Computed example of a mutant assay.
Amino acid sequence: MTMIAVLGNGRVGGNLAAALARAGHEVTVADRTPGAAAAAAGTARIVINATPGAGSLDRLAALREELRDKILVDIANATTDGPDGLPGDLIYPGSSLAEQLQEALPETRVVKTLNTMLFPVMTSPATLSQTPTAFLSGEDPEAKQTVHELLTDLGWHKEWITDLGGIRTARATEAAILFVPHLVRSTGFTPFALTIAR
């Protein structure tokens, strides 16, 4: 059992929190109540960023002390909205939210994952008709191994998980969000994930 704090109580955060609790972890979900995020992060070993990506950097940078020596699992994508409310463009072109978080939180081990799929797939990857891929980006091998084990608790087979390397590789997976509005307009909000076919 691991103490996990999920920052963000929307559909993404709620879905992850429920699945991790079913897997036997002790999970706290922090909403926007003043002090809730700090309290949850301060007592957890792993913190999951499920906040809207456009505001994640400011929210998490304010938790620098609470996040010290913790693993921060960043699943958000930082984008501006297009006219239809779907992702329109990247906030950090030539970089990524994960890189910005790692720079702002040098004593926190940031791992990027689960940001290349619609949220139901994060906790039910086997429901897709084809094998999905979950990517890992981060500087700390031990932190990535811990997150790898967390993904297996969510139903991800080890052969479905690909370690891309350092945190700089997150800019590639974050850029994949630009596929989403086109896919949604074409097929609706049908669960999907990017995958590597070999």
Rank of each mutant, 00 (worst) to 15 (best):
T2A: 09
M3N: 11
M3C: 07
M3H: 10
L7W: 00
N9L: 01
G13A: 04
G14S: 03
G14L: 04
N15K: 00
L16G: 04
A23I: 09
G24M: 00
E26L: 01
D31Q: 04
D31E: 00
A37P: 05
A37Q: 14
A41R: 03
A41L: 11
A44P: 13
R45V: 10
I46C: 08
I48M: 07
G55V: 12
S56I: 04
A62E: 11
R64T: 10
R64V: 07
E65M: 06
E65N: 14
L67I: 05
R68A: 15
R68W: 07
V73K: 09
A76P: 04
T79N: 05
T79A: 00
T79G: 02
D81F: 10
D81T: 10
P83V: 03
P87R: 00
D89I: 05
D89V: 00
I91R: 13
I91P: 06
E103N: 10
P106S: 13
E107D: 14
T108C: 12
R109N: 08
V110I: 12
K112S: 02
T116H: 01
M117T: 05
L118R: 11
P125W: 11
T127W: 06
L128C: 13
L128M: 06
T133D: 10
A134S: 13
D140A: 11
D140T: 04
D140L: 09
P141Q: 13
P141L: 13
E142C: 03
Q145R: 15
T146Y: 07
T146R: 14
H148P: 01
E149L: 07
L150P: 01
T152Q: 15
D153Y: 09
T169M: 07
A175M: 13
V180L: 15
V180T: 14
P181G: 08
L183I: 14
L183H: 11
V184F: 14
R185C: 09
G188R: 04
F189A: 12
F192I: 13
A193S: 15
L194M: 15
